[in-house]
């Protein structure tokens, strides 16, 4: 795994607390955690105090004008002082994410890979990505929904580090069932960016919404503002936490960890500026939907095969 100049990008406190926090995880996950954390911290920190955004420029989706809920000065600052990622220009990409719900088998490898890659807290109450199971029982118009925070879906003895959907519907008459992976939607109009009082969370020109963990004050206004429940508080860092599509990986030409491990091709990732990328093809070949379109956030995660019950 390529890394950025890593640890100098993190505060001393981050490093110390990271060491404490990742003690168990590191032992359990063959040292990947520390690397992931350093890498993620570096990538996120690379933006510095700048908070980017699309001001008046044409955006990759064909629209013109301010799409992000940010200020023009921050946009100008972002253009003037881009993150120091060798060989990467964030104005040349427009990342997007696709989820083909028809393919998901609910194996939850994505959840575990994400937690390892990004040093997410190892419990069922904090996660950057998760999978929801929707089950219609015979005679019911509404789906039963459950996910990894349900204690029954935690692998016994794993101390909330491994997850598996339990077999609770074994004897029930199921008429329809499917899985829906969820993650941060990296919205075009992110409410989290709008409400951040310091500008520590910001929208990048290439799509993802990042958090500067050195600048975040941990007020959790963004956690409240996210309509999708994608954010949480990292108690170790004392700052907000959420999926950034593995920004440290995608800027190296790699896929996000969840996409990498998905055995069925449910998770699709790519550059919308490249018409032959997996995501461009996915969007071309499917009728897609986004979650909670009425919120006006314009998500960048596109779903195929989801149901009216999906929330």
């Amino acid at each position: 795994m390529n890394q950025l100049s890593s640890e100098e990008k993190m505060t001393t406190q981050d490093i110390n607390t990271e060491k404490e926090a990742s003690h168990i995880s590191r032992r359990s996950f063959l040292g990947m955690l520390g690397k992931g954390a350093a890498c993620a911290g570096a990538a996120v920190g690379a933006g510095g105090a700048l908070a980017s955004a699309g001001g008046g420029a044409a955006n990759a989706l064909g629209g013109v004008g301010p799409t992000y809920q940010q200020e023009p000065e921050q946009y100008a600052e972002a253009r003037k002082n881009p993150p120091k990622i060798p060989g990467y220009n964030w104005t040349e990409h427009k990342w997007a994410f696709g989820v083909d719900s028809n393919r998901c088998i609910g194996c939850l490898r994505c959840v575990e890979a994400c937690k390892m890659e990004n040093s997410v807290q190892m419990d069922r109450n904090h996660t950057r990505t998760w999978v929801e199971r929707y089950v219609y029982l015979e005679g019911s118009d509404h789906a039963h929904v459950d996910s990894i925070h349900d204690l029954k879906n935690v692998m016994p003895g794993s101390k909330e580090t491994r997850f598996v959907f339990d077999n609770r519907y074994k004897n029930a008459k199921v008429t329809k069932a499917f899985f829906v992976p969820k993650l941060c939607n990296q919205c075009e109009k992110p409410s989290c960016v709008q409400v951040c009082p310091t500008g520590a969370t910001y929208k990048t020109p290439d799509g993802p919404v990042l958090i500067d963990t050195k600048y975040c004050i941990g007020c959790q206004y963004c956690v409240q503002a996210c309509p999708y429940g994608a954010r949480s508080l990292n108690h170790v860092r004392g700052t907000a936490e959420k999926c950034n599509w593995c920004y440290h990986r995608i800027t190296k030409g790699l896929n996000p960890a969840c996409v990498e491990v998905c055995p069925t091709g449910t998770r699709i990732f790519g550059d919308r500026m490249d018409p032959e990328s997996p995501i461009s093809q996915f969007l071309r070949n499917n009728r897609v939907n986004v979650l909670k379109p009425d919120m006006g956030n314009m998500p960048n995660v596109f779903y195929a095969g989801i149901d009216k019950e999906v929330i």
């Binding site: 109450n125 904090h126 959790q220 956690v223 409240q224 429940g229 954010r231």
Partner: peptide, 11 residues
């Protein structure tokens, strides 16, 4: 059903 991250009350 609630989202997993919601199981902790932020404020």
């Amino acid at each position: 059903f609630t989202y997993p991250n919601e199981t902790e009350v932020p404020w």
